[in-house]
């Protein structure tokens, strides 16, 4: 799919260039994400504690965030994306402690795909990603090239001139991924990015995140255990707002035994850690 799109793209031209991602040396962080006793309450005074005393250290690589519905995955990702204020605890991103002010330089280095990816229907695909690149304060001269690269990486370069409303669900999701990576973020937060992608697209997506994870810290929230097994170097398992497990997919698989529910070792490991409390 990607190959065809680029073929059409490059008729007559000879300049397809993919600069090495993140080759600039602005990385002065050891841990991209450092959370200590993080507490996040949502929904005002009568709300609930979605993240409850979470300790988390994440560095470079692809990290899968797993957990049952309502475990606090989306709230955690929103907090890391700096759109949700932590109630208590400390949070540092890329070595910068979050204090509620002065987030602008930090946000330029983040990429975020929300769970509900809203977009403007009458925008062309390229316009939409360009608009997000502008919101991310990218230098104007770099925007067209960066937008092209981002669309190319998600295999949508040939749909750049189409309206957003003409895209299928999977394509919309890929535009969402393109806007998240357009600024080549050092921390990339993807909330359920594989929803609506067909199996072939999911494979391409895994290749893409593996590539991104070599330079940056990629955190992918998902309910698909198989995505984690295939694409992630590291698994973070949360339940009821707390960290239950962090380790490699193999470590997670090792936790499961034959008695646990699941079709694959990693699913059995997941149920071993999660469903000890009972039903679903």
């Amino acid at each position: 799919m990607c190959v065809t799109s680029q073929r059409t793209e490059n008729r007559g031209g000879r300049t397809t260039v993919f600069p090495v991602v993140g080759s600039d040396s602005k990385e002065n962080w050891m841990q991209a994400i450092e959370a200590d006793s993080l507490v996040v309450r949502v929904g005002g005074r009568r709300g609930r504690t979605a993240v409850n005393g979470l300790d988390l250290r994440l560095g470079r690589g692809v990290h899968g965030l797993l957990g049952p519905n309502g475990a606090g995955k989306t709230t955690l990702i929103r907090t890391l994306a700096t759109v949700q204020k932590p109630t208590a605890g400390t949070l540092s991103l890329l070595g910068t402690p979050l204090r509620g002010t002065g987030m602008r330089p930090l946000r330029r280095r983040l990429g975020y795909l929300p769970q509900h990816f809203g977009f403007y229907k009458r925008f062309k695909v390229r316009e939409f990603v360009e608009y997000l690149a502008w919101l991310k304060e990218m230098p104007a001269a770099e925007i067209p090239g960066a937008v092209h690269r981002a669309l190319d990486r998600v295999g949508l370069a040939d749909r750049a001139e189409d309206r957003m409303k003409s895209l299928s669900g999977g394509m919309v999701r890929r535009v969402g991924i393109a806007q998240a990576i357009v600024n080549e973020p050092e921390v990339l937060l993807l909330d359920e990015p594989t929803v609506g992608l067909d199996p072939a697209q999911r494979l391409r997506f895994r290749e893409l995140v593996a590539e991104l994870g070599r330079q940056s810290c990629v955190l992918i929230s998902t309910h698909l255990v198989e995505d984690v097994a295939a694409a992630c170097t590291d698994v973070v398992l949360v339940s009821e707002g707390s960290l239950v497990f962090q380790g490699t997919p193999a470590d997670l698989a090792a936790r499961g035994t034959r008695e646990h529910v699941g079709d694959s070792p990693i699913e059995r490991g997941y149920s071993a850690l999660i469903s000890s409390g009972g039903a679903w």
């Binding site: 330089p105 929300p114 502008w134």
Partner: peptide, 9 residues
Amino acid sequence: ELTAATPRA
């Protein structure tokens, strides 16, 4: 939500 997470917000 996309807008709120950007530096220009």
